[in-house]
Design a protein around this nucleic acid. Sequence first.
DNA 1: CTGAAAGCGCTTACAG
DNA 2: CTGAAAGCGCTTACAG
Lengths: 336, 336
Amino acid sequence: MAVTMRDVAEHAGVSQRTVSNVVTGSVPVRPETRERVMASIRALGYRTFAPARQLRQGRTSTVALALPRLTEPYFAELAQCVIDRAAQESLRVTVVTTASRREDELAILAGDQVFADGVIMSSVALTPEDESLRHPAFPLVLIGDRGLGGEVAHVGPDNRLAVRDAVRHLIGLGRRRVALLGADRGAALTCEQRTAGYLDALAEAGIAVERELLIPAGWDFDGGLAATLGALERTSGIDAIFAMNDSSALGAMKAVARTGRSVPADIAVAGFDNMSEGARATPSLTSVGPLPDEVAAAALRELSAQFEGRAEPARHVLPHRLVERDSTAVITASPR
Amino acid sequence: MAVTMRDVAEHAGVSQRTVSNVVTGSVPVRPETRERVMASIRALGYRTFAPARQLRQGRTSTVALALPRLTEPYFAELAQCVIDRAAQESLRVTVVTTASRREDELAILAGDQVFADGVIMSSVALTPEDESLRHPAFPLVLIGDRGLGGEVAHVGPDNRLAVRDAVRHLIGLGRRRVALLGADRGAALTCEQRTAGYLDALAEAGIAVERELLIPAGWDFDGGLAATLGALERTSGIDAIFAMNDSSALGAMKAVARTGRSVPADIAVAGFDNMSEGARATPSLTSVGPLPDEVAAAALRELSAQFEGRAEPARHVLPHRLVERDSTAVITASPR
DNA sequence: CTGAAAGCGCTTACAG
DNA sequence: CTGAAAGCGCTTACAG
């Protein structure tokens, strides 16, 4: 740093203390003095050197956000929500991406990459057995899918209930052959839980489970597209698709259209995540889950609670909402 | 911070200096000592407090990335590229979004939000007249579209040349009524430059400019979709569309399909940005421009040069590439 | 390869 | 409302 607070103080003929008061605005300063200091700041081109303040205050006022990737629209939207919410509390956000690599997620737990007061992580590769999850060395909140261990804070929906509600909605439309898209992530808790919700809804309605309606698929647009194309070719009579997330649901809608069928007339489609992109799709996509902004807000709230020592790490079940849109409308629209 | 380096040194029976050597790995430490220190670190749960290191070193090892929003796929991809490239140089990335607000961009120039060694900004609202651009108070690199002032570093393609190449390609396919989608941002330099490239290509081919082929549109998916639907209804005979960016080009392709026409048989479509999403679209999208990763790499390289005082802020013209894909293929595919 | 000590640029009780 | 001074937790010449 070229010019320091000391230089400004000298230039303005006041103490460092006064300059600090002006800069932080924490203490009222006589307008006259204030003006003089501001003038010196401008004249000298002074800028606060953040690390010094942070060292003194013992905190960075930064949160790290760890996500698999920003190129998945859901994560991009979530990141935007976290940034916006954090800004309201004068917190900055450092984004770290893991590419879904277990080693990267573990490195974050080890605190290697963490130059922040706390971490919000969307983990996809950790398991409840991971020891480092027992005692994170810093405030940590897991978001999204995973319900891991008992020690670590978490915010997320009740996956099972949410999916049950969504599939119930599909069945309520009179659909009887509801495919579950993305049903192959054996060990992943989220997948298990969402699958359980699907089975609940079927059982409730007295519909038998058909093995071929459990469709393996990647949880992204291309995964949903490819798997749906395959399923529609292989299996006839599918009249609804519940996708494990919105990205794959959007892919599924494209697949349906490409085979000359219509959403929702021939096949109703619903997803999970309540991505804002779903509202803008054609047809607009029915989805279940908390809103991304609600997830961001809850994660930040939990992190703040830990910063302030207000609470033990807690596990928050976020209420989900089923937003019904055109992709499950009851009208029988004609194709195109 | 609970446990400091001092505590570790005491616990291990060595000096702070030695602990520091072990932690940073900058100086070789006797394996035996090293092990003892590591054991103490684990036992005490020590973690480096970044601000102290940063204060001492006089730098944050963080770059701020300022973008309009993360929910625009191009920016999400660019952010991912910057994060990946930065990680290679042990730099962290703090993401700040401006929502395209001029006041937010100015605040960043004023250094208000900047807790980083330098800033990479994708500005959309500043003009060459903005005084704060003359003498940024910290290393600053503008990316993407804007060619602003002479003082501030910039990386970006030659918009005019790039668009000329792309439109030339369209004309080379035998298309004669090439629409320019997104041609309404009067003052914006990028828009001006790209429009000039379009006009160049037409002039070259001896094609008269048709006023109604200059289509105003927002530079995003929905903007491209809506404007193209309107244009196709209003104007007949359009046989190609060059969109100002890939997002609006993807919207245009959807509009074309929705009106029962086919890409590329009826209407060829090309965009700008070389977003990776374009390669995955159906049909895959022809695009021109540098790759997002090339933009990220160049921006970071320029920033590093400024950090090290290696150079005056420079203006880098990135080579563009025209990636030809299915949306401009010569085969006459039948619809669907 | 390791110690003892200075100092990075701030903020904040402690006085007035 | 303002001063003088201590100290946050590191790294790094300076010695050995």
